Computed example of a mutant assay.
Amino acid sequence: MPEAIRVHQTGGPEVLTFEDVPTASPGPGEALIRQHACGVNYIDTYYRSGLYKAPSIPFTLGAEGAGEVIALGEGVTQVKVGDRVAYSGAIGSYAAERTYPAERLIPLPEAISYEQAAGMMLKGMTAQYLVRRTFTVESGQTVLVHAAAGGVGLILCQWIKSLGATVIGTVGSEEKAELARANGADHTILYRKEDWVKRVAEITDGKKCEVVYDGVGKDTFPGSLDCIKPRGMWVSFGNASGPVEPFSILTLAQKGSLFATRPTLASYVAERKDLLATAYDLFDVVASGKVAIPVNQRYALKDARKAHEDLEGRGTTGSSILLP
């Protein structure tokens, strides 16, 4: 019987259990996937802890994966048995097999491996919409990326650098600073040791940044607003340190007529055409060599608890994957 990681009650990493779980037959419009790799993302910890509400209890964790189609439900035309596919979206990926809506599956080109795909679908497509649609990064601009050595951070640094912008990254250690610089960051700031708002001002000669990409949340607010040029944008796309507390919208006026947004990948890929366009843009930059996908941690599926402990302990860099 296929195995999966299940959550019977929300809480810390200790609530993750490794169990035999029967796989449902694909229903109409669904495909059954034998998974080769499953992505581990910070959003998984939100569902596990209860910050984000799962559809039901118990549930299988995880929002992205890659594998081979092994069976089809009625009416499926988007994929066929034997196709290599990847996805990011509905939870349930921490499993050896799973069903998935066929219209949300993305065919994988031969140039992209299962491990790369599992390590980048959520993070890479997030980076794509952040730099190409939420705020269109252009040559000559200056961009601040928080958690620059994290999964999304390393992809953002490379992608932004390839567009000709200057990248400033905040990181938690000198080792992470070296990694961020190796992946495109022009400047790194050790946020635990340095006044990072002051350092951004120094690096930019007081001109600040056009945009701040903030996946950290509570710990980097409101400082992020003080790093943005008048009429610039604060993009809050994650809560690694906890959610940002409610604040007065007048603060944005006081800081220089700033724009603020809290985007989600789901909103940007709601239509299949947008899903495919986002994924194919990502595949193109990876295949071209402009963006590499650093899968720096690999765990057996049964070791998902360890993966979460490492992730929340900020002991990971780049992407982490589970191998069924």
Rank of each mutant, 00 (worst) to 15 (best):
L323T: 15
D281N: 09
A71T: 05
T264L: 10
R6K: 05
Y114L: 06
V244L: 03
I43S: 00
L32D: 05
T77W: 00
V76I: 06
V85F: 01
G39C: 08
M1N: 03
K198C: 05
S236M: 05
P58A: 01
V235F: 07
C38S: 14
E174T: 13
Q9C: 01
I70M: 07
I321G: 07
T220L: 03
V212H: 05
A148F: 00
F259L: 15
G153T: 11
L275K: 01
V152F: 04
A149V: 10
V171H: 00
A66D: 06
S224A: 13
R314V: 06
E19R: 06
T99P: 01
G50L: 08
A201C: 02
A279L: 13
C227T: 05
V216E: 11
M120Q: 08
H146K: 08
V200N: 01
E19H: 06
D205L: 10
E110L: 12
T23Y: 00
Y114V: 09
G124F: 09
A287R: 15
Y114N: 08
D274N: 13
E271C: 07
A111E: 14
E245F: 03
I189N: 07
Y129K: 12
G289D: 12
Q141V: 10
E271K: 15
V143A: 13
L16V: 00
E74L: 07
E30D: 11
K193S: 14
V7L: 02
K273H: 06
G184Q: 10
A277D: 12
K198Q: 12
S320K: 13
K255G: 02
T136R: 15
K302F: 03
A96I: 03
L179K: 13
L322K: 09
G65Q: 12
G75K: 08
T60R: 04
L322I: 13
L16D: 08
A86H: 01
I43A: 08
G62L: 05
Y52V: 12
K161V: 00
I189K: 12
E178N: 14
W234E: 06
T261G: 02
E97C: 05
V69G: 02
T126P: 11
P230L: 08
K80C: 07
E312S: 06
A149D: 02
K193N: 14
T17I: 13
I228W: 00
D219L: 09
A96E: 15
I168C: 11
I160Y: 00
P2E: 00
Y47A: 04
I228C: 07
T99G: 09
G217W: 01
V285P: 04
Y94W: 06
P22M: 02
E210H: 14
G67F: 09
L105G: 04
G217Q: 04
Y87P: 01
P22T: 06
I43K: 09
